[in-house]
């Protein structure tokens, strides 16, 4: 059979379809991409020369920053305390966004949305919360509740609700709808079907995404500190303003340990739950 194929007369029906030739479209896309980079180069005042000229400044900076200031009472202890506050901001910001993210995700997933109107409304709210960066929320809340970590927690709750709600809604839209339909046929309400068919199916993904967001939020809360919303970011900002670069290096080292520890922990737990 297969050995005789070569001897068969050519059959026009079996000619493989011709590949599309490299066309003007490809060329146009290439030109557009190159052009975009040229414009961006100019727009951002990208300048390797400035970097070379600034080299001396960098060397000066390094001279002042090293060796780091490791005094316990003056630098290390306040630094560690502030790192704990940063961790706390990330923790509360993540945990307290869970109920809001859950409700909005249930409304914003086609699988569980009660109607089109609620679906669109929830999608809009999530988009807004996601589009406003947490730093902007922090600036708003610093003016509302004053400088300090509480403003950071509020900022994270708002932004994280947007991001996590979207991620959770997407997870729910990807599941098999069969179990939900089976319960609906039997008379279960939408909320009941969500609680007994949809949520159990996505629980591992939900936990995985929650831990991932905790990791991201701890890192964000450092940046929030830079704008006055408490934690070790605030100390880093202060030492820069006071030109205490040796202090700053110590604080950055603490930040690095914190970030790596949280990242490892979150990755470990995610592996265990199989999210």
């Amino acid at each position: 059979m297969s050995t005789s194929t070569g001897a068969l007369p050519p059959d026009s029906r079996l000619t493989p379809p011709r590949r599309r030739p490299v066309t003007t479209v490809t060329a146009a896309v290439t030109v557009a991409v190159v052009l975009a980079h040229v414009l961006a180069w100019n727009g951002t005042e990208f300048s390797p020369a400035a970097l070379v000229q600034g080299w001396r400044g960098m060397a000066d900076f390094a001279g002042q920053a090293l060796p780091p200031d490791l005094s316990w009472d003056g630098v290390l202890r306040p630094g560690l305390q502030a790192a704990l506050v940063t961790l706390g901001i990330g923790l509360l910001g993540t945990t307290f966004s869970v109920p809001f993210a859950l409700v909005l995700a249930l409304l914003a997933a086609r699988t569980t949305a009660p109607n089109r109107w609620a679906y669109q409304a929830a999608r809009s709210v999530l988009s807004f919360l996601r589009a406003v960066p947490d730093v902007v929320f922090a600036l708003v809340f610093v003016t509302a509740v004053g400088l300090g970590p509480f403003a950071g927690v509020l900022a994270l709750i708002f932004h994280n609700t947007g991001v996590m709600g979207k991620l959770w809604a997407e997870a729910m839209e990807e599941i098999d709808l069969g179990p939900r339909d089976a319960l609906r046929v039997g008379g279960a309400s939408g909320v009941q079907a969500a609680a007994h068919a949809v949520l159990p199916a996505v629980l591992p993904q939900f936990v995985g995404l929650l831990l991932y967001r905790f990791d991201v939020n701890v890192r964000s809360s450092l940046v929030l500190g830079l704008v006055g919303a408490g934690g070790i970011g605030f100390l880093v900002n202060q030492s820069i303003k006071l030109f205490r670069f040796d202090e700053m290096v110590t604080h950055l080292a603490i930040v690095m340990v914190l970030v790596v520890a949280v990242d490892q922990l979150s990755a470990y737990v995610r592996r265990r739950v199989g999210g």
Partner: peptide
Amino acid sequence: APPHRRMAMIFQQIHLVHRR
């Protein structure tokens, strides 16, 4: 539209919640 409490449907894919 559902619910039709008097009717139940059985599927080829069974559609139980596996984690429960």
